[in-house]
Design a protein around this nucleic acid. Structure first.
Length: 491
RNA sequence: GUCCCGUUCGUCUAGUGGUUAGGACGCUAGCCUCUCACGCUGGUAACACGGGUUCGAACCCCGUACGGGACACCA
């Protein structure tokens, strides 16, 4: 597939000096569904940061929750990333497969006295929670086992392992987006790092994996901000260096509330099927919370050159489909014709009536569409728009007229077409210029404004009142089909 | 409820003590024109509120309101 020349993947990079340490970031989705729009932006931010720093962009699948995970979801996420052209380094890491390593660290924490066995049962926990609620206190687990010896526990009782987090002082997050955020340690409870069934929990797994993978910057949604505090405690207790943080705001729906499906919380593949271009998605998504002066249309090369996590806003942005469309329209207009044609062909299997269109393509409509792309891309916001606006190319006679076309083709309009036909019949060359000349001469001879001829022509040929230049339409349609449709209309 | 974070045109944003508060999308008037788009030229519309600090606040401080996020043996 051809690539837009302004949209290359390997830009000249302003190498940023000082640190010799390579930047390593990761995108760590949990495979419970498709790659939604917020995840796509998080991935994009990570990818851009890695590219801009000449670092690595890793993928880690957080699949420790066996119940909610599926291989299909993993594939959907990878597929979405591939479509967006966010290529990752190396093989995706499965968090689940690293469980032994996580357990090993949990045991080390335990051995060092930085964690303890907690024999609290689910029922006891529920009780504590209820009491707290009744007394209108905030609930924080205070496990009695923090200071009790495990030998006091009844034999054969299952236990979880909790982190012995500091009770006093503060845990401070220095965040590239959120600034300095301080949590009082008393507000953070002793989190469970190993469940009673021996499986590691998320916060432990994340820390161990990020450490082992050499992650230098964690860029993720703000919904993880408090996790950053808890994870910091684990780093501290392990004597590991915590990564740099960047917690980006969430994307909201048009009403300011959480993004819901009807608002655009769709999977990446849904946008592909609506006819959006990856370059446009990247352009739009990055501008949700990040900007570079007044620049609106930004090629991926420029993005890589300009992107910086320190410039990300803290306030959440609302998803606006109209702006996405506008940006997509721009990228369609400036895209290479062959690339667009290629993308449309790849799109067909995934859209309604795509098979029929595909078949029509192989019977000749494909070449016609390809010929009309330069004209069509000027007036399309999405690839679906483009396809829809060109569907008259593979329509079969007699044409179905839409309401406006039908109204336009009144008796006098049909009469005009009837008169026009002869002057089209012996053209030396069925191309736009001679066609235009012939039609303009006809209009002049008849004392008609060009529009009086062009609009009925358009209605007769396309069945609608909207299309590219009618002369181009005639040329692409070809002489026999054009005259046939005109005769149908003239009656 | 507790803890964190936020608030500039309808939306995305620029702006870091002195600006006619800028751009983009949208909407709108017009130009171009065979229609629709594109393009071009205009218009519309914002510093949440209240106190400070200062000669001077969108920018600094405090409070209020509103919004968001986090409070699991989920991730």
């Amino acid at each position: 597939m051809r690539r837009d020349p302004t949209d290359g993947i390997c830009p000249p990079m302003p190498q940023s000096n000082i640190t010799s340490d390579e930047v390593v970031v990761r995108f760590a989705p949990s495979p419970t569904g498709y790659l939604h729009i917020g995840g796509a932006r998080t991935a994009l931010f990570n990818w851009l940061y890695a590219k801009s720093k000449g670092g690595k962009f890793l993928l880690r699948i957080e699949d420790t929750d066996r119940e909610r995970n599926s291989p299909e979801a993993v594939e959907a996420i990878l597929d979405g990333l591939r479509w967006l052209q966010l290529d990752w380094d190396g093989e995706p890491v499965s968090q689940y497969e690293r469980a032994d390593r996580h357990r090993q660290i949990a045991m080390q924490l335990l051995a060092d006295g930085n964690a303890y066995k907690c024999f609290l049962t689910q029922a006891e926990l529920a009780d504590m929670r209820e009491t707290a609620e009744r007394e209108k206190r905030s609930f924080r687990v205070k496990s009695p086992w923090r200071d009790r010896d495990a030998s006091e526990a009844p034999a054969d009782t299952p236990y979880a392992i909790r982190l012995r987090a500091p009770n006093e002082g503060e845990t401070i997050i220095k965040d590239h987006v959120q600034g300095k955020v301080t949590y009082a340690n008393k507000d953070l409870d002793d989190l469970i790092i190993l469940r009673s069934d021996g499986s590691p929990t998320y916060n432990l797994a994340v820390v161990v994996d990020d450490h082992d993978l050499g992650i230098t910057h964690v860029i993720r949604g703000v919904d993880h901000l408090t996790n950053a505090a808890r994870q910091t405690q684990i780093y501290d207790l392990m004597g590991w260096k915590a990564p740099q943080w960047a917690h980006v705001p969430l994307i909201h729906g048009p009403d300011g509330a959480k993004l819901s499906k009807r608002h655009g919380a769709l999977g990446a593949e849904a946008y592909r099927e609506m006819g959006y271009l990856p370059v446009a998605m990247r352009n739009y998504l990055v501008r949700l919370g990040w900007s570079h002066g007044d620049d609106e249309i930004i090629s991926t090369n420029q993005l890589i050159e300009w992107f910086d996590i320190d410039a990300i806003n803290k306030a959440p942005a609302r998803f606006d489909l109209q702006k996405l469309e506008a940006i997509n329209g721009h990228w369609i207009r400036t895209s290479d014709d062959d690339e667009l044609y290629e993308r449309i062909n790849h799109l067909l299997p995934h859209i309604p009536h795509g098979d029929a269109i595909s078949q029509a393509f192989s019977l000749g409509a494909g070449m016609k569409l390809r010929a009309l792309i330069p004209a069509m891309k000027e007036r399309s916001k999405t690839l679906l728009d483009l396809l829809d606006g060109a569907k008259f190319l593979w329509a079969e006679r007699p044409m179905a007229y839409d309401e406006k076309a039908n109204k336009l083709l009144d008796e006098s309009a049909r009469a005009i077409l009837g008169k026009l036909i002869p002057s089209l019949q012996h053209l030396p060359d069925w191309t736009p210029v001679p066609l235009e000349t012939a039609i303009r001469e006809f209009a002049e001879a008849e004392g008609l404004k060009l529009g009086k001829v062009a609009q009925p022509l358009r209605a007769a040929l396309t069945g609608t009142t909207v299309s590219p230049s009618i002369f181009e339409v005639m040329a692409v349609l070809g002489e026999p089909e054009t005259l046939g449709r005109l005769k149908d209309a003239a009656g």
